[in-house]
Amino acid sequence: MTHAAHRVLWTVVALLLVALGGVVLAQSLGWLPGGDPSGVLLGTGLRRSWELATPWAPLAAAAAGLLAATSGLWLLLRELGGAGVGRRGTLVHPGRRGRTRLAAGALTRALERDLTGDPRIRRARVVLTGDPHRPDLWLRVEIVAGARTVGLREHVNVALRRYVDTADCRPAHLDVTALVDAGQA
């Protein structure tokens, strides 16, 4: 999951908490019209309704439980499985009857090998998205301590030119994030 998705999720959770807490507090203080603060949380009326609606009410509760468990499992898989599939990006070519989606794994691995040919780059990760002929290139390079990024930019540019010539494409957008090691300068 992306950072933005996490922020949206927790903003929604926060709003739900405020709404739920606010309603319970209003009921507790007798601010809700028709509300009785001296009543119990689980009144006999509610219990009778539950018993009258059996087995449908428990079945609805079971369905809600399954829904919650499925949501939890989906969330867990999204969190733990983020490092695998999807990190390489997908190229999409629109056609007359739909779109052709192309996993960019093989292309990105070739560029990554080329980039790590320079000893100053310890690790490189490439993500390709967008149109196959005008792809967006997202690079993340880990630079060893003490390396000058001035020369490194030239190395990355040369590797990109080689890639562009081989893959016969022209990147529409280039985004490079460099992670420099601390080490001894």
Partner: peptide
């Protein structure tokens, strides 16, 4: 969500 949902179900 996963554990609570399973227990509730």
């Amino acid at each position: 969500l996963l554990v609570g949902g399973v227990l509730l179900a």
